[in-house]
């Protein structure tokens, strides 16, 4: 069972993500801003991280940097989930170390498939 950390300052989005992933049999931990997310990340072993970009305290880029430059599980797949679009965002996300990105609003099934894809989990 995949264990996923979802970081978003929007309660609604957190809940949407949780439901989509839990329906797919994943184990979801949520965090409501970047700092919270980074500290949660240190507390257990996640198979993937989903993070928003625009958040108080620490933004998504900061989260990615903290994880990638951390002590353990530094190569965990990280998906950026944001309303922002466009090639610069993708380039920024990639340069920051994101594994992939999805645009809000998102389709739960697509999120699940994308997560499985970047974690190499079997699709069915």
């Amino acid at each position: 069972m995949l264990s996923v950390l979802a970081i978003d300052d929007s309660r609604t989005i957190r809940e949407l993500v949780r439901r989509a992933l839990e329906n797919a049999g994943m184990n979801v931990t949520t965090a409501d801003d970047g700092l919270d997310g980074v500290s949660s990340f240190g507390e257990s072993a996640f198979d993937a991280v989903i993070t928003d970009i625009n958040m108080p305290n620490l933004d998504g880029f900061g989260v990615i940097e903290a994880i990638r430059s951390g002590q353990r599980n530094t190569r965990v797949p990280i998906l950026v989930l944001t309303t922002e679009t466009g090639p610069e965002l993708r380039a920024r996300a990639r340069d920051a170390g994101a594994t992939g990105w999805l645009t809000k609003p998102f389709d739960g099934a697509v999120l699940v498939r994308t997560l499985k894809r970047v974690t190499g989990a079997p699709l069915s």
Partner: peptide, 19 residues
Amino acid sequence: VHAVFRAVHSIKGAAGAFA
């Protein structure tokens, strides 16, 4: 200013999910 931006941005992001 960032907080105001984020608030509007969050509303936009979540509103999309409800079409």
